[in-house]
Design a binder for these strands. Structure first.
Length: 150
DNA sequence: GCCAACGTTGGC
DNA sequence: GCCAACGTTGGC
């Protein structure tokens, strides 16, 4: 079992949106490192934090499970889609997505600011300077530690 | 709205 | 294969 953190701008897709729809295809990832993790390492049943970025209350807001392992991200084939990539060929897809399922909302937002205060979390990818990955792994230790803060 | 950090692109 | 230019991310 592996642990993950996935970013989303709540104005695009929030924890409340996920709660409503229950299951969501995590489309639109257009970064190779993030893609590789989704395609190669994410397994059904893995757990992931949902993180709200670029908003008033930045931080971890909920827990989701990986409901379906990687399959081609068809939005890359759609010229009308924001994430259209003409170089992704349906016969040889470049981008992949997983499905995530709502598990629960945290009792409170664990903010980025708060995460930064904890020595134990200093190694988190999320907290590394300049990190821009929208999908990243979280160690079991970090996962448990963060949930203890809730 | 600003801007640092980073990834990607494309000319050479 | 290098690297400058550019676009994007995302915190502040």
């Amino acid at each position: 079992m592996q642990y993950w953190l996935m970013k989303s701008e709540p104005s695009e897709f929030s924890i409340d949106d996920l709660k409503r729809v229950k299951v969501e295809p995590w489309d639109g990832v257009r970064n190779y490192q993030a893609r590789n993790m989704m395609r190669d390492d994410m397994k059904k049943g893995d757990l992931a934090f949902l993180y709200h970025s670029n908003c008033d209350e930045i931080g971890i807001v909920g827990v989701m499970t990986i409901a379906r392992e990687a399959y081609p991200d068809h939005t890359a084939f759609d010229p009308d889609d924001n994430h259209y990539d003409p170089k992704s060929d349906p016969d040889n897809p470049r981008w992949f997505m997983v499905d995530v399922r709502y598990k629960r909302k945290l009792k409170r937002v664990i903010t980025l600011n708060e995460l930064k205060q904890h020595r134990a979390l200093a190694d988190m990818t999320l907290l590394r300077k300049g990190n821009r990955l929208s999908v990243m792994s979280v160690t079991r230790k970090q996962w448990d530690y963060i949930l203890e803060l809730e």
